[in-house]
Each structure stands twice: as structure tokens, then as C-alpha cells.
């Protein structure tokens, strides 16, 4: 039995007398013990989805089962077995690290001791500061404390809504490492993030935009959705390069990626020499043109454009 079964859920909100669709007809399953990533920008519907799954709000229509329990009728059973970390840092800022952990342990009818082995590796990193008020912790430490609190009752499914937003690259790396460790304990993990580069670390990735899934697949499968030829291009004058590439015959899209531009073409017939010749004619120096494999972000933008049209 999958840990999460979602069938055709939709949800809209009313804002300024207009109906805004937050989620439109979404369906997916998450296998037991899987690490499932929901990736998309702010306002795509990630938080709404997570709140429906954690029984916090009701969908307008559709069906959701968590560990076989219905989110509407059997919400009490679900609340006993899930761990949830909301997007905003949601612990008591005026309570110390230890007080927070103890409080959440008691709320879930357990003690810190009982499940210490599960959180040990995470909690040990903040234990030296256990008498510090949670509000006085750094971003990375708050995140570790929040995760410890969400895990203290050894949930069978863990929901993490944007745990790495606003966190620096070092803490993000550490955080994903922790998630991988937790997965080994048999916990099913659903995590949402706006950072495309985190997709590679999930078993399954759902790309979400405007309340709809653009794709659900393994990271490799997702990447293979990009069918067009893709080139990384670089020159000494990047600003001019972009202007010139936009005029290039056969250009499908051109986006900056780090120090390169990713140029996708709408024809397979265009060769490296053709691009090179065109750019040389535009007087570019230090040209570098390489064929590359698409990444998640390339796919996301491609799918985003195709649904917009």
C-alpha cells in the first residue's frame, strides 16, 4: 500500500471576489519509504497541497489517503502518525531548544528518550545550545530543531514544506544529507522546495506550477522530457551574446545558466558550426559552445512555457 494516495484533488480560494485556483486536478501516489519532492516557485500551490495532505485544510474535491486513512473522515488517525514542518519557522521562539522538544514530545504522547535514536544525529548538533531560546538560534539551527520536533514521535510519514527556503547553500546540503539518513529509517518523506537543484536528490520529482503538476517522474525521467537539442554558449561579452542569440534563426529559447547561456534549438539539423559561424559574424571573442544534457531547471522552464501557450 502506498503511503500517500492522491486522486483528482482541486482547491480554489476567493481573493478580491475572484476565484483563484490553487490546485487543479492533481493525482499522485507516494510509495512507502520514498523521498518525494514537490518542486516549484512560490505561489505554485505547494503549501496548499501540503496542508491538504496534513489534514489542515479540505480540498474542494478529490480524495486523499494517508497510510490508508481518509483525510476527511479519519483525520485523527492521520494526525497521530505524521510529522509536519510548516514553511514558516513554527516553534515557540520564547521557549528554549529543550523546552520546545519536550513540549512536542509530550503533545505526541512520547518522551525525548523513547525516540532519541532517531533524532540523535540531528539533535546532537544543537544540543550544546539546548538552554538557548529558539528565537535566538541561527537559520540552520532553527531548521534542525524544527526537524527534531517533527520527528520526535517517529512519524511514518514526514511532510516538510519548503524546509530549505532562505537557508544558505551549506545548511541546505547538510539538510538533504539528514533527509537521506531518515529515509534509511523507513520514513516516507514528502518535501517541497523552490530550488530546482534539489530535485536530483529525490526518488520522485513532481514539478508544480500554477496549481498543476507539469510532470511526475524520477529525476532521470524528468530530465529526459527535454527533447530539443541544447547548447551551452559563452563569450567575453555576455550581454551582447544574449541579444545576438535572441536573433538567431532556429532559436527556441535562450536562458542564462551560471556563466553560460543555455540555447535550445527547434531543429536537430543545426550544427555547432552554424552557431559558431553566426556568433563569429557578430564579432564575439572567447566563444565556447558545447552540447549539453538538460537539467531539471531546463525542463521546468520548457514545460512552463508549453503549458502557458
Amino acid at each position: 500500500m502506498p503511503s500517500v494516495v492522491v486522486e483528482n484533488i482541486s482547491k480554489s480560494f476567493t481573493a478580491e471576489k475572484k476565484k483563484v485556483l490553487a490546485l487543479g486536478d492533481i493525482s499522485f501516489d507516494v510509495a512507502k519509504g520514498a523521498l518525494f519532492g514537490v518542486i516549484g516557485p512560490d505561489g505554485a500551490g505547494k503549501t496548499t497541497l501540503f496542508r491538504i495532505l496534513t489534514t489542515l485544510i479540505l480540498a474542494d474535491k478529490g480524495k486523499v489517503e494517508i497510510d490508508g486513512f481518509d483525510v476527511v473522515k479519519e483525520y485523527k488517525d492521520i494526525r497521530k502518525r505524521i510529522g509536519y514542518m510548516p514553511g514558516k519557522f513554527s516553534l515557540y521562539q520564547d521557549l528554549t531548544v529543550e523546552e520546545n522538544l519536550e513540549f512536542f514530545a509530550t503533545i505526541f504522547n512520547t518522551t525525548i528518550k523513547e525516540n532519541y535514536s532517531l533524532i540523535k544525529e540531528i539533535y546532537q548538533q544543537i544540543e550544546p545550545f539546548k538552554d538557548r531560546r529558539a528565537g535566538k538560534l541561527s537559520g540552520g539551527m532553527k531548521q534542525k530543531l524544527a526537524l527534531s520536533c517533527a520527528l520526535i514521535h517517529r512519524p511514518s510519514i514526514l511532510f516538510l514544506d519548503e524546509p530549505t527556503t532562505g537557508v544558505d547553500a551549506v545548511s541546505r546540503k547538510e539538510f538533504w544529507h539528514m533527509l537521506k539518513q531518515l529515509q534509511k529509517e523507513g520514513i516516507t518523506i514528502l518535501v517541497s522546495t523552490p530550488y530546482m537543484d534539489e530535485a536530483a536528490l529525490c526518488d520522485t520529482v513532481a514539478l508544480i506550477q500554477n496549481g498543476k503538476f507539469l510532470s511526475i517522474d524520477t529525476p532521470e525521467g524528468t530530465v529526459s522530457l527535454f527533447k530539443k537539442p541544447l547548447w551551452a554558449v559563452k563569450s567575453d561579452n555576455m550581454y551582447k551574446l544574449q541579444q545576438d542569440l535572441k536573433q538567431f534563426e532556429g532559436m527556441a529559447s535562450i536562458y542564462p545558466f551560471g556563466e553560460y547561456y543555455h540555447l535550445s534549438l527547434n531543429r536537430d539539423s543545426i550544427l555547432q558550426e552554424d552557431i559558431s559561424a553566426y556568433l563569429t559574424s557578430k564579432v564575439h571573442q572567447g566563444l565556447e559552445i558545447n552540447p549539453i544534457k538538460a537539467g531539471i531547471e531546463d525542463v521546468f522552464m520548457e514545460l512552463m512555457k508549453s503549458t502557458d501557450d
Binding site: 496542508r51 496534513t54 489534514t55 489542515l56 485523527k76 494526525r79 497521530k80 505524521i82 509536519y84 510548516p86 514553511g87 514558516k88 519557522f89 513554527s90 516553534l91 515557540y92 521562539q93 512536542f104 503533545i107 505526541f108 504522547n109 520536533c149 517533527a150
Partner: peptide, 13 residues
């Protein structure tokens, strides 16, 4: 406002 209610609601409390 602080978001802790979300955790409390998602708990068996």
C-alpha cells in the same frame, strides 16, 4: 500567526 497552530492542528492534540 506564528504558524505553531499548524503543528498543533496536525498533531493528535
Amino acid at each position: 500567526e506564528r504558524g505553531t497552530m499548524e503543528i498543533l492542528l496536525a498533531s493528535p492534540l
